[in-house]
Amino acid sequence: MIKRIAQWLACLAIAALATGCATPKPYDYTAYKQSRPRSILVLPPLNESPEVAASLSMLSQVTMPLAEAGYYVLPVTLVEETFKQNGMSTASDIHGVAPAKLKDIFGADAALYVTVSKYGTSYSVISSDTIVSASAKMVDLKTGAVLWTGSALASNNEGNNNNSGGLVGILVTAALKQIINTATDASHDVAGITSQRLFSTGYNGGLLYGPYSPKYGTD
């Protein structure tokens, strides 16, 4: 019996190692490479979290990583004002506009549809955790084809496994974090990290380098 259990555990270990070492399936960039957009229109993000600031917080932090990736990004404040002047102020209404119509209005090559699923800080007796999670898809405004999709998450507790000081230390640390998170908009900073991860380049599943990047065409 013991021998059988040992063999069974060995098989599980081998399966776990095989799964952990499996090569990720290459992302299909066929449509993306055919389109090769130069300019990007970022639509106001859909907000699925209970925090009203989530959409604007994420929107304010997408331009930099996209520009660093090598794309021209239409000014988000100008885009938002254009929609308001046309009677559209909610992200859900804006996301419902046909790609061809967006192309006529803004002249961009592609649009980014962003959705914020988590945004904010959750508190408990001994800990607090600020999490921002978002997903996005890039759509060719000429053809309506989806060129790329991605998602990212960030937390202010990443890598925080220091439990020195015992229970008292944990309680004091949690109390301080709650005070800091309340006094400052911790979620906004975490949203910046999420945005950087979501629109990063140079890895399987990430954005391709844009035409204004010195690495354009190398991916």
Rank of each mutant, 00 (worst) to 15 (best):
Y216W: 14
N156F: 05
E158K: 15
P211M: 05
T63G: 01
G70E: 11
T82W: 03
V168W: 04
A53G: 03
P44Y: 03
L59D: 04
T218E: 11
Y203K: 15
N181W: 11
N161I: 05
S60P: 06
T90G: 05
S39N: 05
Y32S: 07
A53D: 09
N161G: 14
N160G: 04
G210Q: 13
V114N: 04
L171E: 04
G217I: 12
L198C: 08
F199V: 07
S213P: 14
I180F: 10
A67E: 14
G70H: 12
T90S: 12
Y72F: 08
A175V: 10
Q196W: 13
A98Q: 14
N161K: 03
E81D: 11
T77G: 01
N181F: 10
A67T: 15
C21A: 05
Y212K: 11
L208D: 09
A111V: 00
A15N: 00
T63M: 08
I14P: 01
T23H: 15
N86K: 13
T115N: 00
N161R: 03
L153Y: 09
L59W: 14
L167T: 03
S117I: 06
S39Q: 12
A18S: 09
N161Y: 08
M1S: 09
R197L: 08
Y71F: 09
T19Q: 12
N160C: 07
M58W: 09
S49W: 11
F199N: 11
S49C: 04
D104Q: 14
Y203I: 05
M138P: 02
G205R: 14
G166T: 00
W148Y: 13
G169A: 02
L9W: 05
S133N: 11
D140V: 00
Y209L: 07
K177F: 03
T63K: 15
V97R: 10
Q196V: 03
S151L: 05
V114R: 10
R36A: 05
A186P: 02
V42N: 06
G150K: 15
L198S: 07
V172L: 12
M64Q: 14
